[in-house]
Design a protein around this nucleic acid. Sequence first.
DNA 1: CTAGGGTTAG
Length: 920
Amino acid sequence: MTRREAAASLHRYLAWFVAHDGTERTLSLVAEKARQHGALGSADLACALRACRGRADRWPRVLEVHAASVVRGLGGDRLIGNLLIDLYAKNGLLRWARRVFEDLSARDHVSWVAMLSGYAQNGLGIEALGLFRLMHRSAVVPTPYVLSSVLSACTKAVLFAQGRLIHAQVYKQGFCSETFVGNALIALYLRFGSFKLAERVFSDMPFCDRVTFNTLISGHAQCEHGERALEIFDEMQSSGLRPDCVTIASLLAACASLGDLHNGKQLHAYLLKAGMSLDYITEGSLLDLYVKCGDIETAHEIFNSGDRTNVVLWNLMLVVYGQISDLEKSFEIFCQMQAAGIRPNQFTYPCILRTCTCSGQIELGEQIHSLSIKNGFESDMYVSGVLIDMYSKYGWLDKARRILEMLGKKDVVSWTSMIAGYVQHGLCEEALATFKEMQDCGIWPDNIGLASAASACAGIKAMRQGLQIHARVYVSGYAADISIWNTLVNLYARCGRSEEAFSLFRAIEHKDEITWNGLVSGFGQSGLYEQALKVFKQMGQAGAKYNVFTFVSSISASANLADIKQGKQVHCRAIKTGHTSETEVSNALISLYGKCGSIEDAKMEFSEMSERNEVSWNTIITSCSQHGRGLEALDLFDQMKQEGLKPNDVTFIGVLAACSHVGLVEEGLSHFKSMSNEYGITPIPDHYACVVDILGRAGQLDRARTFVEEMPISTDAMVWRTLLSACKVHKNIEIGEIAAKHLLELEPHDSASYVLLSNAYAVTGKWSNRDQVRKMMKDRGVKKEPGRSWIEVKSAVHAFFAGDRLHPLADQIYSFLADLNDRIAKIGYKQDNYHLFHEKEQEQRDPTSFVHSEKLAVAFGLMSLPPCMPLRVIKNLRVCNDCHNWMKFTSDITGREIVLRDVYRFHHFTNGSCSCGDFW
DNA sequence: CTAGGGTTAG
């Protein structure tokens, strides 16, 4: 045998091995041959390269062979070069591949295809098209293979228009009957959801192969057309083509998306029966099937018995436990994978971090964040995206913002996560500013961005900006997304534009529960409570589904109307639909009963709750406090802390108000100090107003004044009004005048402020000053709001103005009242509302023409309601001294409980005394 | 076969 013959025979032998075996042995044979014959030809090096395909562990060999070929002067060799391009491209090293491509001494179609498909596989469609143009310029006529590579580049890089142009060229060149070209076209059209075009290409194909069917099946499976995928599988079987593992993997995906465990299990059995090797792709699909069908146990079994060196399967397991938000298990898998020496990839961190976010374990999330930085994923867009989401959901907006700023390439998701984070924490201005910033960076918002921006507008009732978003939705191409319309309906409702809200609402074809709720809650937040309750009733008639949001919104609308009857109806509906065990619903009910004056019902609701959160405690504490049960409120505050719940700013409003009711000055001040010292809460003006109330009620007006003057934040009207009110009660006109001066500057059109000052002058006998205030009101066109009271009797609400005779039973009411006044005069009542009038004025007044509305309401209530029922009256202004005193006597003589809700607080009158302790 | 963002409430 000559040397030449020996070389040829060995070469054939090697080629056979590569084709049939491709093991380590091939490579050792190459090495052996090198020792025997000293020099290697390009065919042998090519052989060695082929043996490296698809084997990550032989990656170093590729580099060795490349080096050897360059050393032997084979750098421009086509046979070796084409293989190197393919290998480098498959490993994502496109620049190396391109370098080899450029260095080729001559290119054939294989070279072009290798480079083109390399770009295609890495999603670099633009580069692929650039190379395709270069090919045209080099006057190389594309082959069907080239065209199919370019088509697949278009598919991968989402370049539909270019894909259609290539289709035209395919048609012109008459390559339509080539099966692999048809396959590429089917993939293209399915990727863009053009099912009709895909099926047309399919039916025009003279021949189809397994890949055709696989492409159709996987395309339909990915578009959630599981049913069609299974149908095509039937066609495939009747055409006599046998499925391979790609077919089965795609079918498994179809079953997974359909939740069809039955068919999925049959496929699983088929895999085992047909003796198909479970590679990591089929294994992954199987895992995915069991995960999506909720059979986690089987999923875990498959994972345990499979190839545990593949990071994808580990990632899948992280997703498995993430889906049932079992962070503990998820984290266990994460630790096990590291112990097994598996390096997490860029998918791993988003998988586990999302579960941390969902289960609120931010501390663990932070640790994993550090790990991801250590492993070099600091600037990964996906990892950063989920981190921005995690930190911003938790309220660490600054930290989220820093990650966003650090991110070199920000995509629409990273921006939107930040925007959504701002919205979720009520920072709507920041959200809208960031929304603008994103667009200044050239990123166009998508459906989620638009919905978030619309929600930000709704949050601050920014109708003008909201209208802009509305207009953009029409041109955006996202008009099919119901979430956006839901937000817009809510936006209009929240801005009080009921006409627009309804017309948009009617235009939504498939309304979901959020559409309805958006209307109810929106009306509730714009003060259109009746409108909100009307929609709630319509929901019942339309057969819409109620949920927690529906009940919370409707109950709170009833509460704001103080419409206990309406509220009880909603409560009944909640019981019937089984929503009363929801914490949020119970919280709304506590607030309802509290606001309607039934503190006992509120306490009952609270005590029957199975789970209470901060809001539950805040609501009951505030309710007790509003009803004058200060000690109870403070007791509840202690219990709340004992149960390990963290008080927030709302809690302290209730606590400070409670201290005020009980007269606990020093305790109140120490609670106030503890807010920032112990709990890190920055007091808002409302807290300062509470402290002023505490000091004012105790008569420590100088101290109150100093406190206000030393406030570190700017003083608002509420603070001054509280101080002025205390000055009126304690007849301190000097400090009262200072408070009034600030108050009238801040709110020059609020009639209540003038009335308060005028009364403060009256009680201190400064009649001329009082007259000046009255003149000031007149000059400035400020009119006193007429006093009005409401009472509900037998399902109807009866309203009264001061001294009015509009009620059908007016005569009876007035004579009942006269009789009542006689009776209470006998036990010591003296009408004293004249202290607000000068003696001369008093002489001129007709005592009967001046009866406050709350007295009329109470008289009517006493006449109409059975003796056992407490009277619940609502008044639009503060109750005056005389009426307050009158109520005490009336409650005593009639043995009736009277609950009066004025604009400030509740007064419970029983047996001659009031829960407010005579200070309001 | 594996990864991130949303709409209604208190």
